[in-house]
Design a protein around this nucleic acid. Structure first.
Length: 189
DNA sequence: CACAGGATATACT
DNA sequence: GTATATCCTGTGA
């Protein structure tokens, strides 16, 4: 598998997200296969970047190929990949992984061992991979991050995004079709 | 199934 | 300043 360079992200988030389903994400050697992603672009009322830069979302307006990590509901962390298309600040939210590397460490960090729930949800992914605000703004092609391109093209299913109230109709949740590691079933948005 | 937990942002007074 | 909403999850009913 080839390491993805950060200029891979200097394109539209929609196209990039399709190419990332099935790729492998590691943080300090711990991680797995990306099976669920959501797209947020600047023309999107549900995106943090919609109303312009703030202290929290500054990374979304920085160079593509970097991480945007934000605190969710005051408790959890959520990891995004910053993308860029002309005139936009867009990002891809990592919602679920299929655990493949360092499963023991993930179980230890999460305090739970159900493999189907280890990384099924954006907050769980960050807990299992020890992603916190200290990684906000860091490049994705340097340690502790590692992104490996997929070997073959998977079947992708699209559905509405989760946990938002605006622009719910946009089918910008991308899943690896049939994966049991999703944060929710492939149906029902 | 309902809801607490609690950072960050926005919309009000 | 207060109030309300949010890219969520574990716990207890």
């Amino acid at each position: 598998m080839a390491q993805l360079r950060r200029d891979f992200f200097a394109a539209g988030a929609h196209r990039i997200a399709e190419e990332l389903i099935g790729a492998t994400l590691l943080v300090d050697g711990v991680g797995g296969v990306l099976v669920e992603l959501e797209i947020y672009d600047q023309n999107d009322p549900a995106s943090h970047s919609y109303r312009g830069p703030t202290a929290r979302n500054a990374s979304m307006f920085g160079p593509p190929g970097h991480a945007y990590v934000y605190r969710s509901y005051g408790i959890h962390w959520c990891l995004n990949f910053v993308c860029a298309e002309p005139g936009e600040a867009s990002a891809i939210l990592v919602r679920a992984l299929e655990p493949t590397h360092g499963v023991g460490q993930m179980v230890e960090r999460r305090g739970r061992d159900n493999p189907l729930e280890l990384c099924a949800g954006p907050g769980r992914v960050c807990q299992a991979l020890a992603v916190t605000g200290r990684l906000d703004g860091l490049p994705l092609d340097r340690p502790p991050f590692e992104l490996l391109a997929r070997d073959s093209e998977p079947e992708i299913s699209r559905s509405p995004r989760i946990g938002i109230t605006r622009a719910q109709e946009r089918p910008w949740r991308l899943c690896l079709a049939g994966s049991p590691y999703l944060s929710r079933g492939p149906r029902r948005g």
